Amino acid sequence: MLNKFFKKTKYITVSQESLRRNEEVDKKPSIPDGMWVKCDGCGEVLYKSDLEDNNRICSKCNHHFRLTAKERINLIIDKDTFVEFDKGMKTANPIAFEGYEEKIQKMNRNTNINEAVITGTGDIFGEQIVICVMDSFFMMGSMGSVVGEKITRAVEKSIELKLPLIIFTTSGGARMQEGMFSLMQMAKVSAALSKLDKEGLLYITVLTDPTTGGVTASFAMLGDIILSEPKALIGFAGKRVIEQTIRQKLPEGFQKAEFLLEHGFIDKIVSRNDLKNTLKKILLIHNRSRY
């Protein structure tokens, strides 16, 4: 027992080389986290402040980083003109999907919005419009019953106010946690857009990365004018699923905006920095043609 008190203390041997390495580490500058962002397109490491100044577009390869709905509205709509619709509308759990309510609450906290779309009225260089902006950061912009209801109400408001409608799409498709209730939204929004068309009102869609699934199969492709950001992923099903179904190899980039433009599915690819001016021109031409 007493032997433990008289044992020699064991010391760790530290070489001069390890001391030198530690001194070099201590001399390295301390760089705060979050100052740099790696581009998903080209792998370039970008200074975050420069990226923000360029509206989150890579200065090396023109890759368009994804925006939140609120960032998109601030970019497109004139300052202090946006008035939101149905802000308090929240998702229920129509088929009692386990864990769904907790997931929605987590999304609410992380994104500070109630659902995957924000709708309202606003001005673009003084031209008033109704706008719907989907948000990929809220459950990948999946289309549940509240998303469909908010967009449908926005379409109806556009008819009531006799205003052009612009929808910015980004989505992974239908929301599986709501089953058939989610799938019904495609028909509901499309029916509302049919009424808008009969009223002779302008409907513009702006496809952003990614626009897939039921959103592509319905209102995303029903616009009078269909614009897209560069290199946006646009499609219905995934490439692997399609290849397995038709048993053919698909061409490279067949679900990118550039391929769709070449084959007549969209009207124009517009850089984010030019988008507000492009929308202004379209709105002015449309308004002049009506009077």
Rank of each mutant, 00 (worst) to 15 (best):
F6L: 14
I204W: 01
R21E: 13
R272Q: 09
Y47H: 08
R288I: 06
K195A: 12
T119H: 05
A232F: 10
T9D: 06
S182A: 15
A187Q: 14
H64V: 14
I31G: 01
C61Q: 03
N54H: 11
A232M: 07
I285G: 00
G172H: 08
R66I: 05
T245H: 10
T91M: 12
I282D: 00
E71M: 03
K195L: 14
N22A: 14
T170F: 00
G179P: 04
I12D: 14
R240N: 09
I282P: 00
A217C: 07
V241A: 13
E178M: 04
M184T: 10
T278C: 13
I77E: 07
G264V: 03
K8Y: 05
F125A: 06
I285P: 00
N287V: 02
D197H: 12
E156Q: 12
K150S: 08
T212M: 15
A92L: 07
D274C: 04
G214K: 02
S30K: 15
V133F: 07
R288Q: 14
T211H: 10
K27V: 04
C42P: 11
F138M: 08
L67D: 11
D26F: 15
S18I: 15
K10M: 09
N114G: 06
E178V: 00
F125K: 13
R56F: 12
D274L: 10
E24Y: 12
I77C: 04
I242T: 11
K276A: 02
R20K: 13
R288E: 15
M1L: 10
T208G: 03
D224N: 15
H64Y: 07
K188M: 12
A69V: 07
I31H: 01
S271P: 11
D53M: 11
L2N: 10
M139H: 13
V130F: 08
F85K: 02
I95A: 03
G253Q: 01
I113C: 04
M221I: 01
S142I: 02
T169A: 04
D209C: 04
F82E: 08
I151L: 10
I124E: 10
E156I: 00
T216H: 10
S228K: 02
E229T: 14
R109E: 15
I118G: 01
Q177S: 15
S158A: 12
F65S: 02
K103G: 01
T111C: 14
E258D: 08
Y100P: 02
L51P: 14
I118V: 15
V14G: 01
F138I: 03
T216N: 09
R240K: 15
S218Q: 06
V45D: 14
E149W: 04
K87R: 13
S18H: 05
N277Y: 12
E199H: 12
K256F: 12
S171I: 07
A174I: 09
P164F: 08
G213L: 07
I77V: 15
Q16R: 06
G148D: 04
F6Q: 06
H63Q: 06
I77W: 08
D267M: 02
R240V: 12
K150I: 11
M143K: 01
P210V: 14
L284M: 11
I166K: 01
M176P: 03
L201T: 11
I204D: 01
L183M: 11
T211P: 09
G148Q: 03
K79Y: 13
L227H: 05
I129G: 01
I225S: 05
K79V: 10
F85T: 06
T9H: 04
D224V: 00
H263N: 15
A154N: 06
N55D: 11
V146D: 04
L183Y: 08
L201M: 12
E98M: 13
